[in-house]
Amino acid sequence: MEPIISVRGLTKTYKQTTAVNNIDFDVDQGEIFGFLGPNGAGKSTTINMICTMLAPTSGSITINGWNAAKQRGKVRESIGLIFQENTLDEKLTARENLMLHCRFYRVPKSRRAARIREVLEIVDLTDKENQRVDTFSGGMKRRLEIARGLLHYPKVLFLDEPTVGLDPQTRAHLWEYILRLKKKENITMFLTTHYLDEAEISDRVAIMDQGEIIAIDTPDALKRQLGGDIIELSSTDNEAARREVEAAVPEAEITVDDGILRIKVADSDKFVSTILKSLDTPVTSLNIRRPTLNDVFLAFTGRKISEAAED
């Protein structure tokens, strides 16, 4: 199957700096593609180029068979965009917002009413149809934006930090809607988020840093690449504990962070008893876990995403 998005040799340079440096990647039809990276990595620049909002310095982008530089209108009809910030007209009702969108995207007149009903159902806002958007909660506005992004039957839905600024419960709900949507419309999703646990739902993730894509694979494969498990322990004297573990298990990778000793080993079952036996320093807590995308991000960029975000 042809990839729905195909990016080749994409580069964007500003006067002094190269924001995006010769990147290539494909997004397959129907997958959830997580696009991760610290601020300033070139993520937004890349997305803006894919969405035809910014002209690349060089390279090519194909979406749904259309060339993003030459067939802007066709590309724009093929994609739906959910921005970080609210872009609804709050003085209008939900229905009026959706109707305007139908007109902007030339949804055939005969299908508008049915389509509006359909998307409102997906996001559970059917009964709020005729309410003004300024009476909506943050979560409802987000849902309405997702509904709006779907109206014109896009092939790819871009979700740029869709849960930013929402409380955890609303965030969890929103992901339920997004997954429901994927099932129902079999739509491709291009997702960016700062919450890496949310990116776990991706079929594949790409990690971008300093203008380049440094890793691209399924979340599981990326975690496997890290090799093994993580043993986190804290003790009364982390430095002493570190020396003791190093002596007992020379092949372990050890980092100290926030008063926690993070020990990476190939197989936690085999090493945990050895490590515990080797420790004379009293242990105050112990946690053994499989790597998460946070660990993957840390391993590839050398930073945690929360630190990177503060750069």
């Binding site: 909002m53 802007r72 009809e77 965009l81 921005f83 910030e85 609210n86 872009t87 007209d89 902007f104």
Partner: peptide, 13 residues
């Protein structure tokens, strides 16, 4: 200021 212009600008109009 209120963001709606973005919705218009990214559309095919």
């Amino acid at each position: 200021d209120f963001g709606y212009m973005k919705e218009i600008l990214v559309s095919p109009i």
